[in-house]
Design a protein around this nucleic acid. Sequence first.
DNA 1: CACTGGGCTTGATCTTGATCAAGGATGGAC
DNA 2: GTCCATCCTTGATCAAGATCAAGCCCAGTG
Lengths: 240, 240
Amino acid sequence: MDMTRRDIHNSEVPALCRSCEVRHKGMCGALTPDELLLLSKHTRQVQHTSGDELVGEGADVESYDNVMRGVVKLSKTLEDGRQQIVGLQFAPDFVGRLQAGESPMTAEAASDVEVCRVPRAMLERLVEQSPTLRKRLLEQALRELDEAREWMVTLGRKTAAEKVASLLLLIALHLDPEQKGEKRLFDLPMSRLDIADFLGLTIETVSRQMTKLKADGIITITANRHIEVLSLTRLKARCG
Amino acid sequence: MDMTRRDIHNSEVPALCRSCEVRHKGMCGALTPDELLLLSKHTRQVQHTSGDELVGEGADVESYDNVMRGVVKLSKTLEDGRQQIVGLQFAPDFVGRLQAGESPMTAEAASDVEVCRVPRAMLERLVEQSPTLRKRLLEQALRELDEAREWMVTLGRKTAAEKVASLLLLIALHLDPEQKGEKRLFDLPMSRLDIADFLGLTIETVSRQMTKLKADGIITITANRHIEVLSLTRLKARCG
DNA sequence: CACTGGGCTTGATCTTGATCAAGGATGGAC
DNA sequence: GTCCATCCTTGATCAAGATCAAGCCCAGTG
């Protein structure tokens, strides 16, 4: 039984992190009322604006974040500055490498982001004592692993046109899974440079491919980041 | 505390899977003697020769494999046949997507391989009852996730020359971590086509880059797959 | 309003790696 | 041994995408 992000979000386990004063089910959903109460005393709701760094590559892990709203991008950088985005985290994902002293990558707010921050010691204590939480975290790790491997196919074997289509599809499906039908309207949570860094391309190539999708009547671009997908089917057909 | 593959292999937990009549610590190391005894009654040692498929993409997951010897490659294929290798599994890695009805990718023996095969129902029962095993599996999932993301940087942002150097380095360090000093002697566990599919390149490009590394005195190629790295430092310097 | 700067698009040209095409090694079958 | 198939290398050419170079759009500022 494969739990999707949606399933986790909608699961029936009651969860209320008091310091955040909201229900967030990504992590808390796995906890007992007692554990939740304990957790609540240590969590802190934090707002980030686009571009803020949550954790730096190689920095000591001090805390973990449960994404409540917005999109967090995970990236790695080579010595000479070449950058690759290795993952996007949407609500209610959990950000932060467990069981590691230092973060293997940078986590940065792609859009304005709201997170529930848990101190490292606290979370590790909970992970230690809660098998349910470990199970939930294993599920997320396995899902992220699937997503990373899926993306490796995109990076290694798809053309620029297919890469751009794949990213638009990914975002369209993640940002508002509620929208039905063939059309999707959304704001890109990232700049052209971010897109290029995610796809292993340059901004110019991304721009040209977006223009082409527009010319072919598959999307319309209202503002730079305001996208409407006119036909999901035709978009999927371009994903390779 | 980050457990490396080596640490797991060398951990002090006693483990003996009776049907295999060998200690294999990747998975069994996390079990109690009672659980191990139970497991032993259901495992089966299986030999595969290079090219054998362990699990097909989209096939129902019937069992899981603990790699004992050799290298298993994980790959995904697009409809039109383009293939991407998304991971290599060395002993004592565990092969098989937990908590999924069907495998998201193909697992294939890259070299001759020996595995300890556990029926699905059996493993799921053990995972359910053993928090230690879940912890061990979470560790492997997190390590694989790190490796996958590291490889995304290689796929997305490195040149052909850097990609080939990175793969040789990866294999040199994995296959025999005992070898010390600047030199490494090993057999490539994969064909030029496999290498190309791992790196998102063509066989011709791989071949040219290997020739270049040889010409530059960084490796010698005895037979097609018999490689000696003459200077790890100089190889690392080419990894980008 | 004009000015500025950042992010995006578009065009011209160049480079890297793909593609097409031969030919060379290696190993198994007979 | 010869034949054959498979895998690998090398060379010539091509094309996808990078790079270089303007110019555009738009929000923010004075």
